[in-house]
Each structure stands twice: as structure tokens, then as C-alpha cells.
């Protein structure tokens, strides 16, 4: 939609604004239609709506709402897939194993050296 509008236009930015306003309007109407809008914008508007009533809600109510919002955000989180998880875990384990080997090898050598130089004669 935006593309067809703008083609051959001199001032693109003005149109960008238009498009953006459209988007907002769309969203707002969609919001009024159905509460379960999938758009990311719902959260803020909900908050804006409930702001006047905020003073009536007690501290527990507010905490409760906060936790509900936390859970709401958690639902939108994209968790790693099984494959991703296995790859990353394997990479981390291999990395740690390599570093462990290097560091303990170094430590062993240094320990030998320090014992040889500063240690008690055997």
C-alpha cells in the first residue's frame, strides 16, 4: 500500500507520516473490534486506558496487574527450538572443555616450574 502511494512522489517523508497515521488508526479500530488483538501495540493502549482507574486499584491490585503483564510478555517470548538448544549447549560444553584443558595444562606446567624453583629440595 505504502509502495504504490509513494512511487513517483517527491516528498517521501510526508507520506511516511501518512502511512504511519493510517497504521495507528487501523490498529485502534482493530483494537475496538476485538480485545484479543495480536498486535504488539495493545499493551500500551491497555495501560493508557486503565490509567485513570489506577488510583482506585490498591497496591495489591497493581502488583497483581504487574504480574499478569509479566506473564503476558512471557507468552510473547520466542524460546529456542530443540535443535538450537542442543547446538548451543554442545558448543558451550566443547568451549568449556577446551578452556579447561588449556588452563589445567598451563597450571600443571607452572606448578612444576614453581616447585622446581622455589620448592623444597627432594
Amino acid at each position: 500500500m505504502a509502495e504504490s502511494n509513494r512511487r513517483g512522489d517527491e516528498d517521501a517523508t510526508e507520506h511516511v507520516d501518512d502511512v504511519f497515521d493510517d497504521a495507528v488508526d487501523d490498529d485502534a479500530t482493530a483494537d475496538d473490534d476485538s480485545k484479543t488483538s495480536r498486535r504488539g501495540g495493545t499493551a500500551v493502549r491497555e495501560r493508557a486506558k486503565s490509567e485513570p482507574t489506577e488510583k482506585k486499584v490498591g497496591i495489591f491490585g497493581r502488583i497483581g496487574r504487574f504480574f499478569r503483564e509479566v506473564i503476558g510478555e512471557l507468552r510473547k517470548v520466542i524460546w529456542p527450538t530443540r535443535n538450537e538448544l542442543l547446538t548451543y549447549t554442545a558448543v558451550v560444553v566443547v568451549f568449556v572443555a577446551i578452556m579447561l584443558t588449556i588452563v589445567s595444562g598451563l597450571d600443571y606446567l607452572y606448578a612444576r616450574g614453581v616447585l622446581f624453583v622455589f620448592g623444597n629440595p627432594k
Binding site: E73, V77, W79, P80, L85, Y88
Partner: peptide, 21 residues
Amino acid sequence: ITLVVYIEQAQRRIPVQYAKR
């Protein structure tokens, strides 16, 4: 370790649309 990797990789993606210019 697996649990830590799982949570470290979890993201909340906020969609961003770039206008053509």
C-alpha cells in the same frame, strides 16, 4: 547448563517496520 542456555537464548522480539524512503 542446558537450562541456562535455554533462557539465555530466549528473546522477546519487538517488530519494527522500516519505511521505504
